[in-house]
């Protein structure tokens, strides 16, 4: 469905303590999103995962590389074709509070894209209303209750569902969910994750799930692929469930270590460790994670690691010294008081 090859994006650096010049946010990233597949990107804030999502939805340009939608390069399309193509890739934003226009009701928010669609397909006005109700039902909301409401009258979870419903009005092929649950109460997150999973498996909409919470990725698609992104590069990739259970790159391992342990129900993994140091910009001639890596050796600071496979072909990593470690918490079985 979507294939991305060697994507590069550079931003001009702004003030602050970033050095003058340019910041390379995405450094040659390649991946593919299969039709109705679930792909997850994980990484810290600032690793470039959001930029990739914005490029795919056409909200951001890219400097080099190739994006193929159904085998056709985005660069080869005419502006109109490109717009129609990009409409099929919808972004679900992180902040459901900003993603809905506060001065418009849910009905008005859904009507806008539908009216456009109706005009093109010469549909009637009742079609617009029927379709609004349909997409709201699809995301698990009661249209009669939600349609006349303004965004501020809805909970965070309901808002995010409305945002998904709005994206569904254009019959998308791909949903890019950028941290779609991180601003929602933990108690309501699972509902949204299940919704994305259902859209993927039942409606055949591919989902690119961008997150910093590895646990959430399992609920969107445990058999999909997982890409771990560090400073604009993919450092490890594999099948979601497999990668979570047996990561070999120290960065993936530290991300997995950071997932809170439910003490009493789980015991922390034996090799759990959390890097204390803040995000530091790495060197392009060495492993970018070397400065924060607990296991780094001389070679890590002098030689850039290449993409290597680990065991199966789909499990790849960029580490000089990959090693499986037990970092994920394990459930405590039957240890009752």
């Amino acid at each position: 469905m979507i294939e991305v090859k060697n994507l590069v994006k550079t931003f001009p650096a702004q003030g602050g303590f970033l050095k003058q010049g340019e910041v390379q946010a995405v450094k040659g990233v390649s991946f593919s999103i299969p039709a109705s597949g679930a792909v997850t990107f994980i990484g810290e804030s600032g690793c470039g995962k959001t930029t990739i999502g914005r490029i795919l939805t056409g909200l951001e340009s890219y400097d080099s590389g190739e994006i193929l939608y159904n085998g056709m390069s985005l660069a080869d399309l005419s502006p109109t074709e490109r717009r129609d193509r990009l409409r099929k890739v919808q972004l679900i934003q992180q902040d459901p509070y900003a993603a809905l226009n506060p001065s418009r009701t849910v009905a008005q928010s859904l009507t806008a894209p539908l009216a456009w669609e109706a005009k093109r397909q010469r549909r009637s006005k009742t079609w617009i209303e029927d379709r609004s109700r349909e997409v709201l039902t699809q995301v698990g909301l009661n249209p009669d209750v939600v349609l006349p409401k303004y965004p501020h009258m809805l909970s965070g979870g309901q808002r995010q569902r409305v945002v998904v419903a709005r994206a569904l009005t254009v019959n998308p092929d791909v949903l890019v969910a950028d941290e779609a649950v991180s601003m929602i109460d933990v108690s309501l997150r699972l509902g949204i994750l299940h919704l994305l999973h259902r859209l993927c498996t039942e409606e055949g909409i591919a989902v690119l799930f961008i997150t910093h919470d590895v646990a959430a990725a399992r609920y969107v698609g445990s058999d999909g692929s997982l890409y771990v992104i560090y400073q604009g590069e993919i450092v490890e990739q594999g099948r979601t469930e497999e990668l979570i259970q047996s990561p070999v790159h120290p960065y993936t391992q530290s991300l997995l270590s950071a997932v809170p342990v439910l003490r009493g129900l789980e015991r922390p993994g034996e090799d759990r460790y959390i890097p204390r140091a803040e995000f530091t910009s790495g060197d392009s001639t060495a492993c970018r994670f070397a400065l924060r890596c607990r296991f780094s050796q001389e070679r890590c600071r002098t030689e850039k690691p290449l993409v290597t496979t680990w065991g199966k072909d789909h499990h790849r990593h960029t580490c000089h010294f990959p090693a499986p470690r037990r970092v994920v918490a394990e459930p405590i079985e039957n240890e009752r008081l």
Partner: peptide, 9 residues
């Protein structure tokens, strides 16, 4: 309701 990294989905 917590998305967890272990246990059954």
């Amino acid at each position: 309701a917590i998305p967890r990294i272990t246990g059954s989905l």
